[in-house]
């Protein structure tokens, strides 16, 4: 998902404290920043929310790539609004992470040094306009799968950020599907572009949910703490079942010869993505990892004079105001 393979931190507090904390979570209470919480809960959440925030921010890059080349002024305005939303979502999430005692600069520096990750999906390129449709339809569609249940997560600030995000996110998926419909109903060349975009984004989208449950070692503690609500495989299955009829409507073929309805389980059977590719992308060897990090580093470095200048101005004005009083 936007947070993949988030390692649960061990926790060493007294068993009775941990039991009391777990009881609050089991009773459906929200944990707020000033409440007592196990160190492992705090650290795991910083990692997960931070990774989620970084994904929103880095996720602006593949789409921002097409703002100046959108085919109409209306599409351009819509894409600009969507990318602006992603920035907003990143900010909501950074603030939620900061309530846990980490600073914004620390989070940014952890991303830039590679200590913190962002979703693997944003290391794939957006080669043409159909890719912008596929990203909205599939990538935002997959994100929503995970974000809707996270509205019920146990940590209050994270839950509230998720509620805001979910309200805005369905516009993102619909605008992507709208692009795909236009392309799929267009000339044979346009339809072929839509099919090609689906071919390239299908498996990377399935990877967004993280490795299969049987290989996912971090799930149990996070699920008990309600910072993960569904397993990776549950969400992936749901995503496939939701997306298949949408592809059929477009007249596009999902690039999986093994894909078929399984009456018995009431869901589709489908092929696993190539997990070795996933682990390579996570390690930094995806098609765009270097480019994405370069863009973030450049924005951070070249924005330094601006951040510092505004701060200096604010201090000067505050001092002048004190002097005048």
């Amino acid at each position: 998902m936007y947070a993949q393979m988030v390692k649960s931190e061990a926790t060493t507090e007294a068993p009775e404290l941990l039991a009391g904390f777990q009881a609050r979570i089991d009773a459906g209470e929200k944990i707020e920043p000033k409440d007592w919480m196990p160190e492992g809960y705090r650290k795991t959440l910083i990692r997960q929310i931070g990774q989620h925030a970084h994904s929103e921010i880095v996720g602006q890059l593949p789409e921002g790539n097409w703002i100046t080349r959108a085919p109409t002024l209306e599409r351009k305005a819509i894409l600009l609004a969507k990318v602006q939303d992603e920035a907003g979502h990143g900010l909501y999430l950074y603030c939620a992470a900061e309530t846990l005692g980490v600073s914004r600069d620390e989070l940014t520096e952890a991303l830039l040094s590679g200590r913190m990750k962002y979703s693997s999906i944003f290391n794939y390129p957006t080669l043409n306009w159909a890719d912008i449709g596929a990203v909205g339809w599939l990538v935002d569609g997959a994100a929503i799968m995970n974000q809707v249940p996270l509205q019920r997560t146990s940590f209050g600030p994270y839950s509230r950020a998720m509620i805001r995000i979910c309200k805005e996110e369905s516009f993102h998926q619909r605008q992507g599907y709208d692009i795909m419909m236009k392309m799929a109903q267009g000339t044979p060349e346009q339809k072929a572009m839509a099919q090609d975009a689906l071919n390239r984004f299908w498996y990377p989208s399935l990877m967004m949910f993280g490795p299969s449950d049987k290989d996912s070692v971090h799930s149990a503690q996070s699920m008990a703490w309600k910072i993960k609500i569904n397993t990776n495989d549950e969400l992936r299955q749901k995503f496939v079942d939701q997306t298949v009829p949408q592809a059929e409507y477009l007249g596009l073929t999902i690039p999986d010869p093994e894909l078929r309805w399984n009456e018995e389980k009431g869901g589709h059977d489908f092929s696993e993505p190539d997990w070795s590719e996933f682990f390579e992308v996570i390690k930094g060897n995806g098609p765009c990892n270097a480019e994405r990090m370069e863009a973030r580093q450049k924005a951070w470095d070249e924005g330094a004079w601006f951040r510092e200048g505004l701060m200096a101005h604010a201090r000067k004005r505050a001092a002048a105001k004190v002097a005048a009083e």
Partner: peptide
């Protein structure tokens, strides 16, 4: 509705407009 970073109050209002009232 939430929080944000800004150098001063004036910029905080401008940022709040962008971050929290897009709709």
């Amino acid at each position: 509705v939430g929080s944000l970073h800004a150098p001063d109050a004036e910029m905080a209002v401008k940022h709040a407009r962008d971050v929290y009232t897009r709709r």
